[in-house]
Simulated scan of single mutants.
Amino acid sequence: MTYSETAALKALAQIQDLDGKRDIVAAGRLGDLAYEDGYLRVILQIRPTEADKFEAVRKRAEATLKSLDGVDRVTVMLTAHKAAPEVAPKPKRSANPHQARRPEGYQGDALVDHVIAVSSAKGGVGKSTVAVNLAVALAKQGKKIGLLDADVHGPSVPMLMGLSGSRAVTTEKEGRRLITPFEAYGVKTMSIGFLTDGDGPIVWRGPMVQGAISRMLWDVDWGELDMLIIDMPPGTGDPQLGLAQDIKPRGALIVSTPQDLALLDALKGVAMFGKVDIPVLGLIENMSVFICPDCGGSHDIFGSGGVKDEASKLGVPLLGQAPLHMEIRKRSDAGKPIAIDDTAEANFFTTIAQNLMQLL
C-alpha cells in the first residue's frame, strides 16, 4: 500500500486539540505535512505556554501516523510562536523589548556558557566555512563546543561537517522530548538539514523559520558547552531579529571579504546587532588573499585591508584573516574541515579561535 496525504489528514483529524472542542487540523495547528520515501514530517504550531501540555498530543499524533500505509518513520515537531500583543495599553517599561519566548520546563541550552553568532549579512563570503572551522578549532583547544546551523533556507553545515544524510532522533529528558545533536570532530552539531529529507528547497514563511530556529536552540540536548556557535543566515531579517528576542548571545562575529560591496553589507549587520543590543566582538576577513596552487603566489583578488580598516573605525578587533585557498575548498566539499589539521591553512582558524577565547 502507498502513502496517502488524505489518509494522514484524516488521521490527524481524529486527535483532539487541548480544549477538546476541535481536532488539531480544524484548530489550525497543522503547519506543515511533508512525505518523502517513507518518512513523514509534521509540524504543529502551538503557543509557548502550551509546550508541556501539548507533548501528549504530539506523541498521539506520532503513534497514529506510524500506523499509516507507506509510512516507515514519523517526526512530529512543535513550533512555539509569540502570542499576539494585548490590545489594552500597558505601562511603559525600561527593559529591553526583545524578551525571551521559551517553553516551560528543562531547556536544552541551559548548560551553555556563551552563545556566539557568526554573521555576514551577505551570502557568498564563506561565513559557514568560517563558522565550522572556528568551531573545530575551538574544540581542538579543549573547549566543549556546539554548532547550530541557523540558515534554515540554505543549510550547509551537514555537508561541511561530513554529516550529509544524517537524520535526528529525539530522547526524553527531564519530562521533555529533546533532539540529540550529532557529534563530529569534537563538536556537537545541529541543523535543519537533520530534520528534513531530500535536497528540495524549504519553502517556509518567517514564523515557521523562527519556530525551527527556536526549536534547535531550546529543544536540542546540548549538554554542557563552553560555547555554542550559531551559523547565522545571511541578511538582517526575521532570523536575526528572532534570535535577539529568543536568546541573548554573548556577542556576534562579522565575516566579510575585503571587497567594498561585501563590506557594505557587513556594516549593515554590525548596525543591526547594535540595534538589538548584541555586541560585535570582532571582524573576520575571509578570502583575504588568493594563494595560487601552481606557483604559490599571493593575489589580492577582492582588494586588501578593507576589513582591517573597518574594524579600526568600529573600535573592534580584527580576529583573523583566512585566505582563499584550494585546499580549504577541497576539504570543505569533502566534509573534513581544514581546522582538524596542523597545517598553515588550519593555523588561520586556530588564531581566530585563540583571539576569540581571549575576548571571553
Score class of each variant (00 low, 15 high):
V71I: 09
V74I: 03
V76W: 06
M77R: 15
M77Q: 15
M77L: 13
T79H: 05
A84W: 06
A88T: 13
A88V: 13
P89Y: 08
P89R: 04
P89L: 01
P91V: 14
P91F: 14
K92L: 14
R93H: 12
S94C: 12
P97S: 02
H98R: 15
H98S: 13
A100N: 11
E104W: 01
Y106V: 14
Q107R: 10
G108F: 00
D109H: 12
A110V: 08
A110W: 03
A110Q: 11
V112C: 04
D113Y: 04
H114Y: 10
A117K: 06
V118P: 06
V118W: 02
V118D: 05
S119Q: 02
A121K: 04
A121Q: 12
G124T: 04
G124V: 01
K127N: 06
V132G: 10
A139L: 02
K140G: 05
Q141P: 06
K143Q: 10
K143D: 01
G146E: 01
L148K: 01
L148Y: 07
D149L: 09
H153A: 12
P155R: 08
V157D: 02
V157M: 04
P158Y: 03
M159K: 15
M161N: 10
S164T: 13
R167W: 10
A168P: 05
V169H: 15
T170Q: 13
T171P: 09
K173E: 13
G175A: 00
R176D: 08
R176H: 07
R176T: 11
L178M: 09
I179P: 10
I179A: 01
T180W: 06
T180D: 14
P181N: 06
E183P: 05
V187H: 04
V187E: 08
K188C: 04
M190V: 09
S191L: 12
F194Y: 10
L195T: 09
